[in-house]
C-alpha cells in the first residue's frame, strides 16, 4: 500500500506553492487600488476599467484572436494531414526529411524560427502583417498538432477503416465518417494547443509582425519592459481566469465521460 510520507507531502506542498503563488499574487494585486503594485492600498477594480478603455490593448487583443483562430485552424488541418501521412503512408520519397521537418520545429529555438521566416518574407517581398504572422504560427503549430494527432492515430485500430472500406466507403468517406469522428478529441486538443501557442507567442511574432499588426504579447512585452503595471496585472488575471475555467471545464467533461464509460461497461457486463 502506498503511503505519502512527510517528505512527499512537504515536496508537493512547496512545489505547488511555488507554481501557484506568483500567479496568485498577480491576481490579488490586480485588485489593488494603488498604482504602486507591491503595496496594498485597498480593493478596487479600476485597472480593469482602464484596461477596457485602452484602445491599443483592445485592438491588439482583437488581432491576436484573429491570428490565433486562423492559424490554429490551418495548423489543425495541415497537422492532421501530416499525422495521417506519417502514421499510415508507410514509405514514400523523402519520408525522413518530412518527419524531420515535423519534429525539428518542436525543438527549434523561437529566435531562429522567427529570424528565418522574417528573412524569407523579406526575400519574397511579402509585407509584414497579419498574413505573415498567420503563416508563421501555422508552420510551427502544425507540428505540435501533428504530434498530438499522430499519438492518437498510432493506437487507432486500422481494421475500423478497413471495415468502412469493406462496407463500401471510398478512402475519403472512410476518413470522414469513421476515422475523423473517432480521433476528434485529439484533433480538438490539437486545435486548442495551436490556439494557445499562437495566443502566447511573442518571439516569432516580434520578427514577422508589421507596425499595423501588433499582437497582445508584443503589446504586453513593450509595457512590461518598463516594469510592473497594474493594467498588465489586470490583463494577466483575465487571461489566467479564462484559461483556468477552460481547463477545469475540459477536465470535468473528460472525467464525467470516463465515469459514464465505466458505468456503461458495467451495465454491458450485467446484460450479457
Amino acid at each position: 500500500m502506498k503511503r505519502l510520507s512527510t517528505f512527499n507531502v512537504t515536496s508537493l506542498t512547496f512545489g505547488f506553492a511555488f507554481l501557484y503563488l506568483p500567479m496568485l499574487l498577480l491576481v490579488i494585486y490586480s485588485f489593488n487600488s494603488s498604482r504602486l503594485v507591491t503595496v496594498w492600498a485597498g480593493f478596487s477594480t479600476q485597472w480593469y476599467g482602464e484596461l477596457l478603455r485602452d484602445e491599443a490593448f483592445l485592438s491588439a487583443a482583437w488581432i491576436t484572436i484573429k491570428v490565433a483562430v486562423m492559424s490554429s485552424t490551418l495548423a489543425t488541418i495541415l497537422g492532421t494531414m501530416a499525422a495521417y501521412v506519417l502514421v499510415n503512408s508507410g514509405k514514400f520519397f523523402g519520408r525522413t526529411l518530412f518527419s524531420g521537418m515535423i519534429y525539428a520545429p518542436l525543438v527549434m529555438p523561437e529566435v531562429i524560427t522567427g529570424l528565418s521566416l522574417l528573412l524569407l518574407f523579406i526575400g519574397i517581398g511579402l509585407d509584414r502583417g497579419i498574413l505573415t504572422i498567420v503563416l508563421a504560427h501555422t508552420t510551427f503549430a502544425m507540428c505540435f498538432v501533428s504530434v498530438v494527432v499522430s499519438s492518437r492515430l498510432v493506437s487507432f485500430d486500422r481494421s475500423l477503416e478497413e471495415a468502412a472500406l469493406d462496407l463500401g466507403c471510398t478512402r475519403f468517406d472512410a476518413f470522414r465518417l469513421v476515422t475523423l469522428p473517432i480521433i476528434a478529441p485529439a484533433v480538438i486538443s490539437g486545435w486548442l494547443l495551436a490556439f494557445t501557442l499562437s495566443l502566447d507567442d511573442l518571439v516569432i511574432a516580434s520578427f514577422v509582425s508589421g507596425p499595423s499588426s501588433t499582437t497582445l504579447p508584443i503589446k504586453i512585452w513593450s509595457s512590461v519592459r518598463l516594469g510592473v503595471t497594474p493594467e498588465i496585472n489586470a490583463l494577466s488575471t483575465l487571461m489566467i481566469g479564462i484559461v483556468t475555467i477552460g481547463v477545469i471545464t475540459a477536465s470535468l467533461i473528460s472525467k464525467r465521460s470516463a465515469v459514464r464509460a465505466q458505468k456503461d461497461a458495467q451495465a454491458a457486463e450485467r446484460s450479457a
Binding site: S159, E162, D166, L167, G168, I182
Partner: peptide, 17 residues
C-alpha cells in the same frame, strides 16, 4: 477495390464503429 467487391468481412476485433 475493397469497397466495390460483393464481399464483406467480419473482423477479428469486430471493428465496430
Amino acid at each position: 477495390p475493397p469497397n466495390k467487391r460483393a464481399v464483406n468481412m467480419m473482423f477479428q476485433s469486430y471493428a465496430l464503429f
